[in-house]
Amino acid sequence: MQTSKARIILSELVGDPRLVLVTGKGGVGKSSIARLIALIAQAGGLKPLLILFDEFGGESDGIEQVILLPDAVMLEYLETHGFGPLAQRLLKSGVIDAVSTAIPGIRDLLVLGKIKQLVNSGIYDLVLVDAPASGHLLSLLSSPDGLGAIATDGPIASQSADVITLLRDKELTGVVLVTLPEETPVQETSEVYNHLTTLLATNVLSCVVNRMPAMVDRRDDLAPGSAEDRANHYLAARSNFASQQAKTVRDLLPVPTFELPYVDDATQPTRAAFALFDQLDEWGFR
């Protein structure tokens, strides 16, 4: 793919931010889409970083990636904030566990702080976060707010303020919502959109409707009740239902919407990302 074309596609998909959080309900393919955007950025001559939260993230494919595990991030934070070698002992003692269970946002905030650090490092042109499922992302993103309200002094309070500034910077940061053409994911996407834009004041860049089935029209030239007729009835109903759902997304969300086709291997993020990347030319981008 030409560099210039990749840059155009990237800018249509996400614009020109430094930090993109990709989220959606569990099982909608957000990991594939995060990786796909990284591939497009790379093809456009940029240096992307992919951040994952899952140990079973995906096969490596030439995209630089880092896996953030909350406990490790917590340990690193404590080690570099005056606890040094004591940090390990603190974690083991259970005190940290109790405090962070009581105030779950603390772990989240430290993770966001780490992301901020990677964005500000200047090493990467684009940091992509294969974010947790949307419900959890909302609580992740609201943790600085919540903690800001609870913790009024100390390093956590100032960390909260910094992270809030980054998340609300519309030039630097944005969210890509991934959904499926089915009722529940679409409904949840719309709720997440409202929550992000109103309560959290975070920019939503675009919405990807993933795994669209191939369009099939209902035929009238088949023997009624034959296997072909019933198969055609099913396929037409399914594709009709999916396009209704995609239309609902377009109607509900005032952001660019992209429909991506179903690919075989849809559930293996790395392979799905490559399969979609190979079909980029067919998506109808200019």
Binding site: L78, H81, G82, F83, L86, L90, S93, V95, I96, V99, I103, I106, L147, I150, A151, T152, D153, G154, P155, I156, A157
Partner: peptide, 13 residues
């Protein structure tokens, strides 16, 4: 230890 934690997360937490 708790005192030290308080220094990081804030005493009110």
């Amino acid at each position: 230890l708790v005192k030290q934690i308080a220094n990081v997360v804030g005493a009110d937490v």
